[in-house]
Simulated scan of single mutants.
Amino acid sequence: MYNVSSYKAKNEQEILDFIKEYPFVQITGVNEKGKPVATQIPVIVEKRNDDLYIVGHMMKETDHCKAFQENPNVLSVFTGPNGYVSASWCVSPNKGSTWNYMSVHAEGKVSFFEGEKLVSLMKTFTLLHENGNENSPTIYDNLSDSYTNKWMPYITGFEIKVDCLDTVFKLSQSLDEQSYLNVIAELEKRGGRDSFLAMEMQKRVSELFSE
């Protein structure tokens, strides 16, 4: 991980808010023979007392599921807005251009579960992503028994107890105020994903340039 102190998140709540906003996580690991594997999965993040857990489900009999069962040590990467930042936008452009991005890395051990615990997870997961709409035909409780009986045996629930959490929120913190504001303006002009990056930078203006 790019380890620069000025690019670290300031508090735990900021990190929790980020990973809940960007729950489509990339989970990587290696099997017992050292072969790397990876998958991208939507997850739920839970705080249990002082511990943080990443919870979700995945297909059985995949290379990554088998590898995680052989070697439970995994790295989960949450990725947020990112985009190119041209040095030409800075007051003194005699420097290299760069890429701004936001990322949280969570290390831990994965364990698996099925049965009623998996059913409970799917109920929570589907209701959450249907915005609490209990009348939605696609929440778990409204699916037919024939459907759930057919497909549930193909998936397994998992949870990762997070042992180490680290961040890179690289958002041009090293720039002077005018250059920083120029970058925001240019990103907003480009729109799309760059506008989300601009929004994140805008949140930090008063903190970075309070004097």
Rank of each mutant, 00 (worst) to 15 (best):
1 M>G: 12
2 Y>M: 09
4 V>S: 15
4 V>M: 15
5 S>T: 12
7 Y>E: 15
8 K>H: 10
8 K>F: 05
8 K>G: 04
13 Q>R: 03
17 D>V: 04
18 F>Q: 00
20 K>C: 00
22 Y>M: 01
23 P>N: 09
25 V>P: 05
31 N>G: 10
34 G>R: 08
37 V>L: 10
38 A>Y: 02
41 I>T: 11
42 P>E: 02
43 V>R: 10
43 V>L: 00
44 I>E: 15
45 V>M: 03
47 K>F: 06
49 N>H: 09
49 N>C: 08
49 N>L: 13
50 D>Y: 13
51 D>F: 11
52 L>M: 14
52 L>E: 04
53 Y>V: 00
53 Y>D: 07
55 V>C: 05
55 V>F: 02
58 M>R: 05
58 M>H: 09
59 M>Q: 12
60 K>R: 08
60 K>T: 04
65 C>A: 15
65 C>N: 14
65 C>Y: 14
66 K>G: 00
69 Q>N: 05
70 E>M: 06
71 N>W: 03
72 P>S: 05
72 P>M: 03
76 S>L: 11
81 P>G: 06
82 N>Y: 10
85 V>D: 07
86 S>F: 06
86 S>Q: 08
89 W>T: 05
90 C>T: 11
90 C>S: 07
91 V>L: 04
96 G>S: 14
96 G>Y: 07
97 S>V: 05
97 S>C: 10
98 T>H: 00
99 W>I: 12
102 M>L: 11
103 S>E: 13
105 H>Q: 11
108 G>F: 06
108 G>C: 12
109 K>A: 06
111 S>F: 12
113 F>R: 09
114 E>Y: 14
115 G>I: 05
115 G>E: 11
115 G>R: 14
117 K>F: 02
118 L>K: 15
119 V>F: 13
120 S>W: 11
121 L>V: 03
122 M>D: 01
123 K>D: 07
125 F>A: 00
126 T>S: 09
127 L>M: 12
128 L>E: 09
128 L>A: 13
129 H>N: 13
133 N>R: 07
133 N>T: 02
134 E>Q: 08
134 E>M: 12
135 N>I: 01
136 S>A: 10
138 T>A: 15
139 I>V: 10
141 D>R: 10
144 S>E: 01
149 N>L: 05
151 W>P: 10
153 P>A: 15
153 P>Y: 15
154 Y>G: 12
154 Y>F: 11
156 T>K: 10
157 G>A: 10
158 F>N: 06
158 F>P: 05
159 E>W: 00
159 E>D: 05
160 I>W: 13
161 K>Y: 08
161 K>T: 03
162 V>I: 11
162 V>K: 12
163 D>A: 14
164 C>K: 15
165 L>P: 04
166 D>F: 08
168 V>S: 15
169 F>L: 01
170 K>P: 00
171 L>K: 04
173 Q>F: 11
176 D>S: 04
179 S>V: 00
180 Y>C: 03
182 N>I: 13
183 V>A: 07
185 A>N: 07
189 K>M: 00
189 K>V: 02
189 K>I: 03
193 R>T: 09
193 R>C: 09
195 S>G: 03
196 F>D: 14
196 F>S: 12
197 L>T: 01
197 L>I: 01
197 L>G: 02
200 E>T: 12
202 Q>V: 05
206 S>E: 11
208 L>S: 04
208 L>Q: 08
209 F>Q: 07
